[in-house]
Design a binder for these strands. Structure first.
Length: 826
RNA sequence: GCCGGGGUGGCGAAAUGGCAGACGCGGAGGACUUAAAAUCCUCAGCCCGCAAGGGCGUGUGGGUUCAAAUCCCACCCUCGGCACCA
């Protein structure tokens, strides 16, 4: 309920007229058009394209305004910049709108794009609009299909039946990455599982390469860590437990363990309820109980199943397997604490050395056998699993060995005897890309009864989305009910065939959209190979950290795969990454409609102009941390720009004196050059808040200098000019207007970024701090070039320092050049 | 539970071994005004003091150092990620 309690300040210019004037002019003059062969080092600076939800949120402003300032700064710094923009235009909300309100997804999406394009233009961003990409247009998605076929050809796209993650609300399967804490990432509905035929991309083949971040120039450590955790590399040993006595086709039950050293401690075996061997290994007398258990597990949501608080449950299968190291019979159980999708889906139960197994063993009265002795262990039963280091006991030939060596020794032994092998297991799964929805790229596959699964011939692309479709949510793709779409001819035998009815996950679009920006309307190639050679990879990428293991991981996978297919010449899509933080509501809470704390940027832009909103967002705190919106805060930005407006428009001749005061002039120039240095470093490093603070200090200093009337016209001009150049990336409209008003040649945005003079950066006098025993007792103004001896002498002579030194013995005098003298007494 | 970021005035924050609180918001007082708004000036971490000055102060407790918001150890809170991963 944080209604706008604060009144908005008034700005001294007409914000709507000023914004419109310059936006039209820049547009007309093609100021931000991309010249692929233009002068200057190429610089591809990309911001994550938005989903066209219909309205520009303050979060979009927070993502794009600082990004734009950085882009403009790079341009002024002499780089040849590509800064494209587009729309992630396929996806569920469009289809949901169609279901709810009967608007066609295409109509809804394109209308939203038009509106958002207008809103984004109102920010005054220097995007290269000519390169715009809209994913839902056939000119884009035909290449999605083409790329899918390349993956298919290279064995990187495949179809299989698997218990896929299902969102009952979105009525589609999801990728593992789209599940957050057992819920759909998009609508927070608890997910279930469904056995379905699905298309996958073989991301796991690249697991090892995706863990190699050496090709990146500058990514946040946090994102690397999240990707590392997601991939979840785990080296261990796969061991086969003999089941040949059961007379099945399968002779062994494979388990994966990272603790092969505990192999002698196995007292039971657990199979996930969905494990394919569960039915085969169940004895007739146990069948009813086991089937009931499996059925119950199937019904439970992942949230219920994965709760670690739950008591362990399971069912005895009535059969046994044989431990390969000691020949013991081991009881087989199914229990839902084993998950089917990880490793082999079966776990060896070592209750003495794994807490989960311990809990299960307690529950079912299974034996606990210690094989790694805790220090000073006398054979007493354990109260909980012992997971630390120790020495092997009850482990045959390995007794007496420290278990750290036992891990290697047993792995060697198993490999020698052919009963096991070292393997690396990954947590990451292959990427499930088929969706049972309409508003996406149709998967270009044809099913022929005679010829099987066939790719649509490239010459027949694109497979267009039919327009006349019924959008009822049924759990299957609306395309499946469109006979005109489904019915086709087999490209091989010419007989009747059916099309694939699923569409492609929109994260495929974003895995390569940055390549399409180079030549968005090219009908011959997905991207222009010449331009790609020159312009890729992306030099700087900015966007939210929420895409750490989805978009960013998929895109890295995609590019590595394209590289291996010979389609691109680089292996990492984004060299540098910067994640902006999240803008919160005025109440410091996450913005949401239900909290009523959502800030609508349009209102502020209308009243205060784009530049005020931009500057405030950059000033409110470090960009990567985000922070709460403040109406009072934005008034501060408006007031500052008001002062700037008035100060910069002044005619230096009005106050400039004929005989200027050299010291005052030097002080003003020094302030200007110090600010140039600071702002150059800060804006380059995305530290906009401190850059603006430094500019506020400079404008304050200039105001003081004006009142003192000691600086000459030339110095004053230099100060004004430098200020406006620094202001240009931050407040582009205002800077341009003032640049014009002060008689300078259009455009401020085409000026070179100003350089500072290092000799002017250094101050002439410094404040020397005098400490006694680390406490500040005096401050002296001394020449910057003061010698150590002089500094110490003056410090000792300070009356207040003397008072604290008194008659005590001076033990040490620490001198920090240019900063302080610390007299240590006592 | 594990991993990572963060904790500094009334608020957003700055300072990454050397003057804590730059810059801004909010606040108080003053100028201008018939008045208000806007604008400008002054004050402003807390405590004692008329002042000069002094004491205390960067989540908590300890440590290293001439000197710690900053480095080290332990803990608390908070935000994010992962979580029965064998």
């Amino acid at each position: 309920m944080t209604q706008q309690t604060q009144r908005l300040a008034e700005v001294r210019w007409d914000p709507r007229a000023l914004d419109a004037k310059w936006q039209a002019r820049w547009d007309r003059d093609g100021l931000y058009r991309w010249h692929a062969d233009g002068r200057g080092e190429k610089w591809y600076e990309l911001t994550m394209y938005p989903y066209p939800s219909g309205d520009l949120h303050i979060g979009h402003w927070y993502a794009y305004a600082p990004y734009d300032a950085h882009v403009r700064f790079q341009r002024m710094s002499g780089k040849n910049v590509l800064a494209p923009f587009g729309f992630d235009a396929f996806g569920l909300p469009a289809e949901n709108a169609a279901i709810r309100r009967g608007i066609h997804p295409h109509t809804w999406t394109m209308g939203n794009i038009e509106n958002m394009r207008r809103q984004i233009r109102s920010m005054g961003c220097a995007f290269t609009w000519d390169q715009e990409v809209v994913c839902c247009l056939p000119e884009f998605y035909r290449w999605n299909q083409w790329l899918f076929l390349q993956f298919f050809k290279h064995g990187l796209a495949y179809r299989t039946r698997a218990p896929a993650v299902w969102c009952p609300s979105c009525q589609t399967v999801l990728a593992n990455e789209q599940v957050v804490a057992g819920r759909c990432e998009r609508c927070e509905t608890p997910i279930t599982r469904r056995e379905m035929d699905q298309w996958f991309l073989r991301t796991t083949r690249y697991a090892e390469q995706l863990l190699d971040f050496s090709g990146l120039v500058d990514w946040p450590e946090k994102i690397l860590l999240m990707q590392r955790n997601w991939i979840g590399r785990s080296p261990g040993v796969e061991v086969a437990f003999d089941i040949s006595h059961l007379g099945l086709e399968e002779k062994g039950l494979r388990v994966f363990t990272t603790r092969v050293d505990t192999l002698y401690g196995v007292t039971f075996m657990v199979l996930a309820p969905e494990h394919p061997l569960v039915p085969k290994l169940t004895s007739p007398e146990r069948r009813a109980a086991v089937e009931a258990y499996v059925e119950e597990a199937r019904r439970k949501s992942d949230i219920e199943r994965l709760s670690t608080e739950r008591e362990k449950t399971g069912e005895f299968l009535g059969t046994y397997c044989i431990n390969p190291v000691n020949g013991e019979r081991v009881q087989l159980f199914t229990a839902d604490y084993a998950v089917a999708w990880y490793a082999t889906g079966a776990v060896m139960g070592v209750p003495a050395h794994d807490q989960r197994d311990f809990d299960f063993a307690k529950q079912y009265g299974l034996p606990v056998r210690v094989v790694i002795a805790p220090p000073d262990w006398k054979g007493a039963p354990l109260a909980q699993a012992y997971v630390a280091e120790g020495v092997h006991v009850n482990s045959g030939q390995f007794d007496g060995m420290p278990n750290s060596r036992g891990v290697e020794a047993m792995a060697d032994h198993l490999e020698r005897t052919g009963k096991g092998k070292r393997v690396i297991t990954y947590r990451m799964r292959d990427w499930l890309i088929s969706r049972q929805r309409y508003w996406g790229t149709p998967i270009p596959i044809i099913y022929c009864e005679k010829c099987g699964t066939l790719p649509v011939p490239e010459g027949q692309l694109p497979v267009l989305l039919p327009e006349d479709v019924e959008f009822k949510p049924t759990g299957d793709s609306p395309l499946a009910r469109h006979e005109g779409f489904m019915r086709t001819r087999c490209p091989q035998c010419g007989g009747e065939a059916r099309r694939e009815s699923n569409t492609i996950d929109t994260f495929v679009d974003s895995s390569w959209y940055f390549l399409r920006y180079l030549s968005p309307h090219d009908l011959q190639h997905p991207w222009d190979p010449e331009l790609a050679r020159k312009w890729l990879p992306v030099d700087q990428y900015t966007g939210g950290a929420e895409h750490a293991v989805m978009h960013l991981l998929y895109a890295r996978f995609f590019i590595k795969a394209l590289r291996d297919m010979g389609l691109v010449g680089f292996g990492e899509p984004f060299l540098r990454l910067y994640n902006q933080g999240v803008i919160l509501g005025e109440d410091h809470e996450k913005m949401s409609k239900s909290r009523g704390n959502v800030v609508a940027p349009d209102d502020y832009v209308q009243q205060l102009g784009a530049d005020v909103v931009r500057c405030y967002l950059m000033f409110l705190g470090p960009w990567d941390r985000g922070g709460p919106w403040s109406t009072a805060g934005i008034n501060g930005a408006a007031r500052w720009l008001n002062r700037v407006w008035e100060l910069m428009a002044r005619d230096p001749a009005e106050q400039g004196r004929d005989e200027a005061n050299p010291e005052a002039e030097r002080a003003l120039r020094s302030a200007v050059h110090r600010t140039l240095k600071k702002v150059t470093g800060d804006v380059g490093a995305f530290q906009f808040n401190t850059a603006i603070a430094a500019m506020m200090e400079l404008s304050n200093a200039m105001q003081d200098a004006w009142e003192e009337r000691k600086a000459g016209v030339a110095v004053w001009r230099e100060a004004q000019e430098s200020f406006l150049l620094m202001l240009a990336p931050l407040a582009p409209h205002l800077a341009e207007e003032l640049w014009e008003k002060t008689g300078r040649a259009y455009s401020v945005h085409q000026q070179p970024w100003p350089k500072w003079d290092e000799s002017l950066v250094a101050a002439q006098t410094i404040t020397l701090v005098v400490q006694v025993n680390g406490r500040v007792r005096d401050r002296l103004t001394v020449p910057a070039g003061i010698t150590e001896a002089e500094a110490k002498e003056q410090a000792m002579a300070s009356a207040n320092a003397q008072k604290h030194i008194g008659s005590a013995q001076v033990r040490q005098v620490v001198y920090v050049p240019g900063r302080l003298v610390n007299v240590v007494v006592g």
